[in-house]
């Protein structure tokens, strides 16, 4: 029956989508480029020589585009900022030291991917439970779960800091990963439940009558139909966890520090004001993994969200 659902939603080979030509491409390209400009400026800043960051007028382009752009808007691109992300002199005139950013990048990747995957595993099970075996007061449970996302992080964080300090979890991978898992669960459960709600129960019932166990029905029949949903939820969760700042600031130790926290410290330390080129270089490097994941899961993202939430 999966076939007919996809068909009903008009998703087979994008049959519901009109075709448009290169004219549309041109128009959208202009809008998308303007929308992307602030990001592009950050990326270009990462390639500027240190002194160029605060020039007035600002330098805007690494090339003159065959004379199209006046010379005073053009800078000479350099890669030295990316080097100084990982190693630079901390005191004026001092020898270059390792900044530990390789460790912070590893931490960010490790913590974000483990906690998002864990939330996905636990949340998908729970979503299947909420969808297929409604408990007494099912909607109340779901609303309470949504409530956990409503309060600002600072409210949850005070008791959590005290709790972690007592238990000795502050600054450990385990603590921060569990916290992020909980942080992602609400979104995961709400999203995955709506995916399971859309599935036709006929196939599952048929399998049960044929003697398949509940576990087998879940893994062999329900799960393969919501792959797109898993991908969409993964991307949303990853984007949110990747850039999370407050929990990381207050709960990660020197060994488990993530990039947003380290980035904040690196650019504002030393009392010399913001180090713009360094900040831009860190952000540019930090953008690459999540950009690639989103790009490669993009098709699932659109299909997944659709499949999950449109009530038909």
């Amino acid at each position: 029956m999966a076939e007919s659902i996809w068909g009903k939603l008009g998703l087979r080979r994008a049959s519901g989508v009109d075709k448009a030509g290169w004219g549309r491409t041109l128009g959208v390209a202009v809008v998308a480029f303007i929308y992307f400009l602030p990001v592009l400026f950050i990326i270009f800043t990462a390639f500027k020589p240190q002194g160029d960051a605060l020039l007035v007028p600002p330098t805007l382009s690494p090339t003159s585009l065959f004379g199209l752009i006046p010379d005073h808007f053009v800078f000479t691109p350099t890669l030295e900022n990316f080097g100084s992300v990982f190693s630079r002199s901390m005191t004026p005139g001092g020898a270059p030291e390792a900044t530990g950013f390789d460790r912070y990048f590893f931490n960010s990747i490790f913590i974000a991917s483990v906690s998002v995957l864990l939330a996905l595993a636990i949340g998908t099970l729970a979503a299947f439970g909420f969808s297929r075996y409604p408990l007494k007061g099912n909607d109340t449970y779901l609303f309470i779960i949504l409530t956990t996302r409503m309060l600002p992080a600072i409210v949850v964080i005070i008791p959590v800091i005290l709790m972690f300090r007592v238990v000795g979890l502050s600054g450990s991978y385990f603590g921060i990963i569990m916290l992020y898992t909980a942080f992602n669960l609400a979104f995961t459960i709400w999203m995955m439940k709506s995916f399971f709600d859309e599935l036709s129960p006929d196939v599952e019932d048929a399998a049960r009558i044929d003697g398949s166990s509940g576990i087998r029905v879940f893994f062999k029949i329900a799960l393969p139909q919501v792959i797109a949903g898993l991908a969409a939820t993964f991307v949303f969760g990853l984007i949110l966890t990747w850039n999370e700042f407050l929990f990381a600031l207050l709960l990660s130790g020197p060994d488990t520090r993530t990039v947003p926290v380290a980035m904040n410290q690196a650019v504002s330390s030393g009392g010399r004001g913001t180090d713009w080129t360094l900040l831009a270089a860190i952000e540019t490097l930090f953008l690459i993994p999540v950009f690639l994941v989103t790009f490669f899961l993009q098709d699932h993202l659109l299909r997944g969200v659709t499949f999950g939430t449109v009530k038909r």
């Binding site: 990747w242 947003p260 831009a280």
Partner: peptide, 12 residues
């Protein structure tokens, strides 16, 4: 390109 602003860190 349009999705990228969402992926930036709020700090940066």
């Amino acid at each position: 390109l349009v999705l990228t602003p969402m992926m930036l860190s709020v700090v940066a």
